[in-house]
Design a protein around this nucleic acid. Structure first.
Lengths: 282, 282
DNA sequence: CGAAACTTTGACCTGAATCAACTCGGGTGG
DNA sequence: CCACCCGAGTTGATTCAGGTCAAAGTTTCG
């Protein structure tokens, strides 16, 4: 069960396999150094409490406070609460809960879902380490539910802190506005996806987006481990699990990607990219 | 060419037919008073410049500053620019334009569209008087284009003003956050619409939403005049114009609504509402 | 080790897209 | 004032992408 990650990230405590960024407290069994990469296998050791500052966090340059000066960062840190790790399938918040604050993924991953009156759910987003979510609650109550897709942990920025901080740190306000705008933009491009793209194009877009986000986080952009089920992917893309399964099969046949269970190896990123932006939808 | 509206709205200058809220400067030809309603016919008189304060605006209780105290409102007013009226089909801003500010619809209506790399457009929203839009630009550049669907005018809240005001008026900041969150929420419920609902349900939801919004604005909730084409509606709902046309026909047959060109008379609101929330999509 | 949850595969069906006429209404210019 | 034109809207015939149902694998995890 080995995986690779850049040395400097390991030093600062990022584990790629389980994506928990407190690797220093983990039981590291074995590692091999190799041209800037280490192969590590990890086990157990979850839930060890440890106050990690934002400055030390391996996700610092991806996360909310990245726009802040060192001084501002210090103020910011004191307002952030680190939540205990959560098991897969647990809710961080549910539809209708009073807005408590925003959350940054520290490790693991989350999905947000909105539910129709008849019980049908729609997955509205997946969130990877360093990504901020919870904006759907800014209007007093969360309109979505957030569920951990695997063993995960988050940092919380409570509403009260936000109100205090945005006055003191105008940069933070701008950054929050920007992130919120980005949430709107991605939702809207999803609208375009869902109504104007074929199933094939949607899946390609999904893989391309995941690949880019993984790479940004220092993971491999070509070997991905999906933390969400076929059902979640299908639901997110407005398809059925069966269709997603068949599409994965087609990707294999066309040598665009190797898919085995939840492991995806992207063989031809360019081709996938072309498929997304390729001429016309349906 | 007559239409009705509450007396108190007329005094404050709201015309229902053309939805221009400077009716006092219009040439009112004929009116009949009747149990709190007036029937008016209006003509010509567009583009007469007139500085209208937010406090006098008939949309005050719907628009952005509604959360402000009279004192705050006074500060707010000075920052709002009234833009000249625009003809149908003109762009207020286009994809890629540098973010200039947010816009509130004063009269008429707008659509926002996002365009795919291949030129295909997707309508992401329709905006009625009193509604605020332009949030898609908060991340430096507008990701959508905004087009006037009819003769329309807007109030502009420039970015520089926003930055100044949110510091002075915390209520305004909260209200902006709330509106932005609402934008996210409606986009996400559109995601659900597009991927989990049948064509019939989507159109029903569209009509229900329009009806409620018209009513909120003091217009009739049962007799609507659509300012957008079948193509726009279809595009917004992820359908084709042909399908929308057939669905309207079906609504007529089932006596749920009378549709004639761009005039819609809702006959059975409850039934439409049930259709939206009815058990299961597809 | 075994149950439950997730995936894959196949056969079949259907809702909405596509393509192609045709109609209607409003504006224009002779 | 009317003939013409053009874009918007309607209607019908046909097609097919992706949904549905069913049943057999395959992980995963207690």
């Amino acid at each position: 069960m080995a995986n690779h990650l850049p040395v400097d990230r390991l030093r600062r405590g990022l584990c790629t396999r389980c994506r928990i960024n407190d690797i220093s407290v983990y039981n590291v069994r074995k590692y091999l150094s190799n041209v800037g990469f280490l192969y590590v296998a990890v086990s157990s050791g979850f839930n060890i409490p440890m106050k990690l500052t934002c400055r030390d966090c391996s996700l610092a340059e991806l996360c909310l406070p990245r726009a802040l000066s060192p001084d501002d960062m210090e103020q910011f840190e004191t307002m952030v609460d680190q939540r205990p790790a959560m098991a897969r399938g647990n809710f961080l918040y549910q539809t209708g809960d009073v807005f408590g604050g925003l959350y940054a993924v520290k490790s693991g991953s989350f999905k947000t879902t909105i539910s129709a009156s008849d019980g049908e759910d729609q997955v509205t987003g997946f969130y990877l380490p360093g990504e901020l979510f919870g904006f759907d609650g800014f209007d007093d109550h969360y309109s979505c539910s957030a569920v951990a897709l695997e063993h995960s942990s988050v940092c919380e920025l409570p509403l009260s802190s936000i109100d205090q901080l945005v006055v003191k740190l105008p940069n933070l306000r701008r950054e929050l506005d920007r992130l919120m705008a980005r949430e709107i933009t991605t939702d809207q491009s999803m609208l375009l996806q869902l109504s104007r793209r074929t199933a094939e194009q949607r899946l390609a877009a999904f893989l391309v987006s995941l690949s880019l986000r993984f790479r940004q986080r220092g993971f491999s952009g070509t070997e991905l481990r999906l933390s969400m089920s076929r059902y979640d992917i299908a639901n997110y893309l407005g398809l059925t699990a069966e269709t997603v399964s068949r599409l994965f099969k087609r990707l294999k046949e066309h040598h665009l990607a190797l898919v085995n269970g939840r492991t995806v190896i992207i063989q031809d990123f360019e081709a996938l990219h072309r498929q997304v932006h390729g001429s016309g939808g349906r």
